[in-house]
Design a protein around this nucleic acid. Structure first.
Length: 1018
RNA sequence: GGGUGAUUAGCUCAGUGGUAGAGCGCUUCGUUCACAUCGAAGAUGUCGGGAGUUCGAAUCUCUCAUCACCCA
């Protein structure tokens, strides 16, 4: 049964992938035949994710390297996995709950986490199946997950990534690389969690700049310029008893604790140290000097809200201003029960502000405040203003700088080795320009906020215990409680009150002491530490405790997050008991992803895989996560195991739409790789991406291009089909032995194959994926299909038995080489052909990658076939231009052909005749006048078509060719005449130029002769 | 504002000092038994502008213009 005319990708892909998996072809070490290892860690997609074009590109490149190394016999591992994507996953599950009218808060933390795991079990494998559709040859038996082995993980989610994360946190904490601190962080009011500065996007929005008047206190005034001369010097002033501050965020004014002016600003210099009265609440706030206030911008006076703005925080730190938080975790106004806010304000105004503003959303508050300012006359004006507003990259809501306790990695302490490794070239970043980006970011690195107020994630392994009371205070509290007991017995109310009052003071003193932190990787360890510290039994509350159930807002109010047991309890029992509570927060997902290289290999256990594959080889990733992930992996691996995680980072570009726009859902220009795979086949999609993967340049993807590479697959398919139909694979040895042909065409194609093998290997070794793809495209289509298959026809159809046998063997080998070399890029169609064309000892995925090289190139055969190809092209071109009917076989004349030409013709007569539609070749001394002339190296050919050709047209054709030739010749001789060129250019360049000039001169002479003949005719 | 990159055929892009290229599209011709998802032939370039280095510049340097991205 003959093969189908095209490859049925839809039918074959799933079947082939299944066969590979069933045979364990992708398992770590499969097909290994040499000691070297090769390991790639997949950049873990979100467990909520689905395959987009960027994934398709990224994983295609990884798969090429992995399949290439596996075929070359390296002990290869492509480690797959997903990350748990804290916010994104929690968002997805909460959305599911919302459909049932429920929220996360309707469940306990444990219940909610069970739901997340349940969701993960059902939907978390989506992207795995999509990667399989693409053909990704990952070792799925090792699929990793950044939450595997977490305490609440269900069966099937074992693994020890959790252990790795916790151990690293503890190690880094012990080394002093991680600390807890009250700092301004980027707060996402939608998810009510801190996020890192990398998760913040600056979005330009049209907004307003509101000018507000803050009254100067104690009768102070200043002169405000109102008229200026031509040079901009003020010529008239007005006296003002207020300062005008400009702000884009009036709602923060309730937290203002100062107004900053530039120390050298002549308008305000004398006011520094004086105060203004804050409208709405009557707080008296100082005017401070700080260079942050730009005299050129706005009014030169800036309201300072340290608790709600990063710049203001800095100013506040420098000038000793209070930081007053006036918002809740949902960015509503927080005024009631907020002693910080009320302190120093007019109680009546505070009551009024609470009544009007407490609990309302920040944007409503903004409006209300502006209305009030308008009504009360302290709104100075409104200007429209376009400015950048930070937004959460997940929630898309404006983030709020917010003052909370968070955990930070002190990145400055671990950045050094990560910088050095790249500086010294231990890790290379390609393309090189990205090294600059890497350096720039790391050299200016900020502390990394790693705590998140979420439930889904690795809970921070820190427990809080009560402060240890001093002996005196402890004793005093014992005594007081004893007295209280006595008073209780005596029912002496006055005495009880007196004791309570004193006890209250003791308690206050205890409260002001620091909470005790215990950081350890296990409950046992924490308990041991705590018991040693307190010298008494310790119980541990493992979450779900009071604190964990408090809203984050309530926790904020608690400030120092004191835990249940305040102090050594002072009852009359002889044994004291201390209760510890765990920090309810979880770690940033990127903290766990940062351990991907070691974590997936089983660290902290010293597994065989860890010893074998770490450090890994190449990381292939998009530039958008250089900071998020690459830099952090470098820092963390070096900090934890003191080794680089990989020696090469290949940073690929962005896949855009065909107009160059970033693909986005809102623009609707997203190309879905799965749809493309369905329409064109995975191989076409892969090959397209590969051929466009020039380093450092974005890809503009069009379906037309994909269709083109689908056609390429069909072309290969049909070349194989031709071979199969001609019995090429019957009796073929299939042991990979390079054929030793005697026919020139066969020698030639063997050499061409050897060349492309070398080109492909060199290109892949240099991560020049597009060069490899394009070389193969040019070889398979341009050499094998266009020429070799055609050349083989006379031999296969009309050749002698020996010629037939030799050509069959050569063609079988050549097609096998095409399949092998193309396999990493087009795994499906090549594997299918491999199986179709014969019975093989191994599947193509494990076929041996060839090592032959230029030694297979036969220069004489090469020269000869190029001459034959040139001759055929010339004859075809002349025929087409002279309108010779396509089907007509024409006689050809030849004159002055040299020995090489005669030999070439003799050996390849059948080929030329067939491909150029030549009827006969006759040698003549002089060419007839009316003929089409073809000048080639070593002789002149002509088509005697006096009755067909148009003399004018032939003349024009020859003149055009001649003109082009002469132009080239002009350049060449110009250079050769220049003595400096001959002196300074490399010898081979000069030699090459001379040869070329000679050949062109020769050809030009022949054309001139032809033109003369034509002239005689006319 | 700071940084990085780009500008080459109608379109998308290769090409880092030595004869300007590919694919797609376009025009003409062709169903000869691998393939019409095909074949043959053809047209199309002041390599963004200017200056410099060099025997020689698309390529190196400077400068201007335009565009894109990243960071503030």
């Amino acid at each position: 049964m003959p093969m189908e005319k095209t490859f049925n990708a839809a039918e074959a892909e799933a079947r082939l992938y299944d066969a590979w998996e069933k045979a364990g072809c992708f398992k770590a070490g499969a097909n290994a035949s040499r000691p070297e290892t090769f390991c790639i860690m997949i950049p873990p997609p979100n467990v909520t994710g689905s395959l987009h074009m960027g994934h398709a590109f990224n994983n295609t490149l990884q798969d090429i390297l992995v399949r290439w190394h596996r075929m070359r016999g390296f002990d290869t591992l492509w480690q797959p996995g997903q990350d748990h994507a804290g916010i994104a996953t929690q968002m997805v599950v909460e959305r599911e709950l919302a459909k049932e009218g429920k929220s996360r808060r309707d469940f306990t933390r444990e219940e909610f986490l069970a739901k997340v795991w349940e969701w993960k079990g059902q939907s978390g494998g989506t992207i795995i199946n999509q990667l399989k559709r693409l053909g990704a040859s990952c070792d799925w038996s090792r699929n990793a997950f950044t939450m595997s082995g977490a305490p609440n993980a269900p069966a099937g989610e074992e693994g020890n990534f959790h252990d790795a994360v916790i151990k690293v946190f503890v190690d880094m904490y012990d080394k002093g690389y991680i600390y807890r601190g009250k700092r301004l962080v980027n707060w996402d009011p939608h998810f009510e969690t801190a996020i890192s500065d990398l998760e913040v996007e600056q979005v330009e929005v049209d907004g307003h700049m509101w000018r507000l008047r803050y009254a100067l206190e104690n009768g102070e005034t200043y002169e405000h310029p109102v008229e200026w001369d031509e040079d901009g010097n003020p010529t008239a002033h007005e006296t003002r008893d207020y300062l005008v501050v400009a702000t884009t965020r009036p709602e923060t004014m309730l937290g203002d604790t100062g107004v900053a002016v530039h120390p050298d600003d002549p308008r305000y210099r004398h006011l520094i140290g004086k105060t203004v009265r804050l409208p709405l609440c009557g707080r008296s706030i100082p005017i401070v000097a700080d260079e942050y206030a730009d005299p050129e911008k706005g009014t030169g006076a800036v309201k300072i809200t340290p608790a709600h703005d990063f710049n203001d925080w800095e100013v506040g730190q420098r000038t000793n201003l209070r930081a007053i938080n006036v918002m809740t975790t949902r960015a509503a106004m927080f005024l009631k029960d907020n002693p910080e806010f009320a302190e120093g304000c007019d109680p009546d105004l505070v009551a009024k502000a609470i009544e009007r503003l407490d609990g309302i959303d920040r944007y409503e508050a903004r409006e209300a405040i502006i209305n009030e300012a308008t009504d009360d006359g302290w709104l100075d004006g409104i200007d429209s203003d376009r400015h950048m507003v930070p937004h959460g990259d997940r929630s898309k809501t404006a983030i709020e700088p917010y003052l909370t306790d968070q955990w930070f990695v002190d990145t400055a302490k671990i950045v050094g080795p990560a910088l050095d490794a790249v500086r010294k070239g231990e890790t290379k970043i390609l393309p090189e320009q990205h090294e600059k980006v890497y350096f720039h970011w790391l050299e200016n690195i900020e502390p990394w906020c790693i705590s998140r107020q979420l439930w889904w994630g690795h809970q921070i392994p820190v427990w809080y215990g009560p402060p240890l009371a001093s002996k005196e205070l402890s004793q005093r509290s014992y005594d007081l409680i004893a007295q209280m007991d006595a008073a209780e017995i005596e029912k002496d109310k006055a005495k009880q009150d007196e004791i309570w009052s004193e006890l209250d003071q003791v308690l206050r003193q205890l409260e002001t002491q620091e909470t005790i932190l215990f950081c350890a990787s296990s409950e046992n360890e924490v308990q041991k530490q705590a018991e040693k510290f307190y010298g008494c039994p310790v119980t541990i509350d493992w979450g779900g405790s009071d604190i964990a159930d408090l809203s984050t807002q309530q926790r904020y109010r608690l400030g120092n997050r004191q835990s249940g047991g305040w102090y050594k309890s002072g009852n009359s029992q002889s044994v004291d008991v201390v209760n510890l509570e765990r920090d309810p927060d979880v770690l940033d997902t990127w903290f766990s992803s940062g351990l991907w290289p070691i974590g997936t290999l089983g660290w902290p256990e010293q597994t065989d895989e860890l010893n074998k594959y770490f450090p890994t080889d190449v990381l292939i990733t998009g530039f958008d996560i250089i900071f998020f992930w690459v830099a952090r992996m470098m820092m963390m691996q070096l900090a934890v195991v003191d080794r680089i995680p990989f020696h090469t980072v290949y940073v690929h570009a962005l896949v855009r739409d065909e107009k160059g726009k970033k693909m986005s859902k809102s623009l609707g220009n997203v190309l879905d790789p799965l749809e493309l795979i369905e329409e064109y086949g995975a191989d076409a999609v892969r090959f397209t991406l590969t051929s466009m993967a020039a380093m450092g340049r974005d890809l503009k993807l069009s379906t037309q291009r994909i269709a083109g590479y689908r056609n390429f697959g069909t072309k290969l398919w049909n070349a194989a089909r031709f071979a199969e139909m001609n019995g090429v694979f019957e009796g073929y040895a299939r042991d990979g032995t390079v054929p030793q042909p005697t026919e020139t065409v066969n020698k030639w194609i063997v050499g061409e194959t050897a060349r492309v093998r070398q080109t492909v290997d060199e290109a892949l070794a240099a991560y020049r994926f597009n060069d490899a793809a394009n070389a193969l495209y040019a070889f398979v289509w341009g050499k094998v299909c266009d020429w070799y298959v055609e050349f083989s026809k006379p031999l296969l159809l009309d050749g002698s038995e020996a010629e037939r046998a030799e050509t069959r063997a050569t063609m079988a080998w050549v097609i096998d080489q095409c399949l092998i070399l193309l396999h990493p890029m087009m795994p499906f169609i090549t594997e299918e052909l491999w199986g179709t064309l014969g019975t093989r000892p191994k599947m193509l995925v494990h076929a041996d990658w060839p090592t032959y090289g230029p030694e297979l190139v036969d220069p004489a055969a090469d020269r000869e076939m190029n001459w034959v190809i040139g001759l055929i092209e010339e004859i075809r071109s002349a025929r087409a231009q002279m309108h010779v009917p396509a089907g007509l076989h024409v006689p050809v004349l030849q004159t002055g052909l040299d020995a090489a030409g005669r030999d070439a013709w003799a050996r390849n007569e059948a080929l030329v005749k067939r491909l150029a539609r030549v009827e006969s070749l006759t040698e003549v001394d002089t060419l007839p006048k009316g003929c089409v002339t073809i000048a080639v190296e070593g002789g002149t050919f002509a088509l005697p078509l006096a009755d067909i050709i148009d003399v004018g047209e032939e003349k024009a054709r020859l003149e055009k060719t001649l003109a082009k030739l002469e132009k080239e010749l002009g350049g060449l001789t110009g250079r050769l005449k220049n003595p400096k060129f001959v002196e300074s250019a490399p010898e081979e360049v000069v030699e090459e130029t001379r040869d070329l000039a000679a050949a062109k001169t020769d050809e030009a002479a022949k054309l001139r002769t032809a033109l003369e003949r034509l002239a005689e005719l006319a």
